[in-house]
């Protein structure tokens, strides 16, 4: 059995999750805490990939990153570099499709505690950076973690947009969902079943771990309460 789809899927989903984690927290923080004209429009654009068919997202990405696309043509001209039909294309597809999940979780997490807790730290002379790292981030952490796990699971399962921008190139852009689809198409049900089991196990264990972590931490707090 060739395990490339597993390694490729893990690589693509991990890189996409890191990007989404950083950018998602940054944007959620900026947008949630500030009001500006057009905020509603910006948030709608960020959440749009969640309601669009992945093929539409893929089409949009091709439009941007294709050989003749706005960004794609510049990359080709300046760096002689092409994103279409590479694993980087698959990372971009995963980032765009899973971004709304992280954004929503992070937005909710940052609004889930009393704003005066941050204000108190500011009145004590703490810089905004210190307030973020010592107050906001730890208090929002359970929500951010949930968003990260959902992002990873969504990135791992991405199919439609990935197929459109990265295509199906064995050992190069062949992620698990693509391997399943093309195994079924070629009648190789044994390989398809194998990959289905693997991806179900990965998704299941991510969610199990998240639930376990959340319950353990809630339990820890209730123990603190009980010891009063």
């Amino acid at each position: 059995m060739n395990y490339t789809p597993l390694l490729l899927s893990l690589k693509i989903a991990s890189i996409a999750t890191i990007i989404v984690f950083i950018v998602g927290i940054f944007l959620a923080r900026i947008i949630a805490r500030n009001s500006f004209p057009g905020k509603n429009v910006v948030e709608s654009i960020i959440l749009l990939p969640m309601v669009l068919p992945p093929t539409v997202v893929g089409f949009g990405l091709l439009y941007l990153f294709g050989k003749n696309g706005i960004i794609g043509s510049l990359l080709l001209e300046w760096f002689n570099f092409q994103i279409v039909f590479t694993w980087i294309g698959a990372v971009i597809a995963s980032v765009v499709v899973s971004f709304p999940l992280m954004y929503q979780s992070a937005s909710a997490a940052f609004q889930n505690f009393d704003l005066n807790i941050e204000n108190a730290a500011l009145t004590m002379g703490a810089s905004k950076w210190k307030v973020f790292w010592t107050i906001s981030f730890p208090l929002a952490f359970p929500g951010l973690l949930a968003g990260t796990v959902l992002t990873f699971a969504r990135a791992l399962g991405e199919f439609g947009a990935t197929l459109m921008i990265a295509g199906y190139i064995p050992n190069k852009t062949e992620t698990i969902p693509l391997a399943i689809y093309f195994a079924v198409e070629s009648g190789n049900m044994e390989a398809a079943t194998f990959w289905v089991v693997i991806i179900v196990l990965l998704g299941f264990s991510s969610i199990m771990w998240l639930n376990w972590w959340t319950k353990r931490n809630i339990l820890r707090f209730s123990e603190i309460n009980d010891k009063r």
């Binding site: 505690f113 009393d114 005066n116 807790i117 204000n119 108190a120 730290a121 500011l122 009145t123 002379g125 703490a126 810089s127 107050i135 730890p138 208090l139």
Partner: peptide, 19 residues
């Protein structure tokens, strides 16, 4: 800015850092 004012503020719900 807030950080430079050196004013103590006790909020209604105390706003202690729960963690």
């Amino acid at each position: 800015p807030i950080q430079k004012r050196n004013i103590g503020y006790l909020f209604q719900d105390y706003a202690l850092f729960p963690h």
